[in-house]
């Protein structure tokens, strides 16, 4: 009994350790001073005004949204098609294809960043939106394929046979049977892809150059030197968006289950 209580207390402590530290950026974002001290001695929303008013922060925010939307638009159709293809493969070919698809997740991101930077530099693509979009789409692709794959695996194959037996073509079968049923997986994959891109730091730091800085790149540059509470505002903003995405993802999963 005492063991049970001790275990529960330990779990509560560790849960607090997992969740609470992240929240430190929230009070820091409402500081009235030009430096961060926790808890702030005086409160204000002035740094929120700075964040949304300052052209360089606003540009970074818009760039992040632009890149994340485009990367999602690239990764979702490619990842969905790939998941459909992977589901039909068997044996060694399937294992090879899977190995290629998890590659971007397994290879350390710093290695990917340096490799992409080397290629983008000689192609003159550093500092372009295209470089960021392609890099982020590559990182998001495995997650999309995986999410769609999970939905596909839950599909009843009899449905496909029935539709084919009734004379439906593959495209019609996909459009009227498969796609509606795997849609939660596709949308879940899209949420994932968007967040993967929006949160991405390392590839972006290497590829952004001076002209395509995203929000995480701006935060990264600020906190490596001296920072004001506006960084905490940016961090709070990113956190709020991430929690929103997590909640919507969970809703989608519930609907799928």
């Amino acid at each position: 009994m005492a063991g049970r209580v001790a275990l529960a207390a330990f779990a509560a402590l560790l849960a607090a350790f997992l969740v609470l530290p992240v929240l430190a950026v929230v009070p820091a974002a409402f500081s009235a001073r030009s430096f961060i001290r926790l808890p702030p001695e005086a409160w204000s929303v002035r740094w929120w005004g700075t964040f949304f008013g300052d052209p360089s922060w606003r540009r970074a925010l818009l760039k992040s949204v632009e890149v994340a939307v485009l990367a999602t638009l690239v990764a979702v159709p490619l990842g969905t098609a790939a998941a459909l293809g992977l589901a039909r493969l068997r044996g060694i070919v399937r294992r090879l294809a899977l190995a290629l698809f998890v590659g971007p997740v397994v290879v350390p991101v710093i290695v990917l960043a340096v490799a992409l930077y080397a290629v983008a530099r000689s192609a003159g693509l550093v500092g372009t939106t295209a470089a960021l979009v392609l890099g982020h789409a590559m990182l998001a692709l495995p997650y999309v394929a995986l999410n769609v794959g999970v939905s596909l695996a839950a599909l009843d194959p009899a449905l496909g046979r029935a539709a084919a037996g009734l004379g439906a073509s593959s495209w019609r079968l996909f459009r009227t049977v498969t796609l509606p049923l795997i849609l939660p997986g596709v949308v879940g994959g899209a949420v994932f892809a968007f967040v993967t891109s929006f949160d991405e730091v390392v590839l972006s730091v290497f590829l952004a150059g001076p002209s395509a800085k995203t929000l995480p790149v701006r935060i990264w540059e600020e906190i490596r030197v001296e920072y004001t509470p506006v960084v905490a505002v940016a961090a709070t903003f990113m956190m709020a968006l991430a929690i929103l995405a997590a909640a919507s993802f969970r809703l989608l999963r519930r609907r799928r289950a």
């Binding site: 950026v25 961090a235 956190m239």
Partner: peptide, 11 residues
């Protein structure tokens, strides 16, 4: 779901 950058900045 929260960016590693944000979590690290908190620390």
């Amino acid at each position: 779901w929260i960016s590693v950058l944000v979590r690290t900045f908190s620390w």
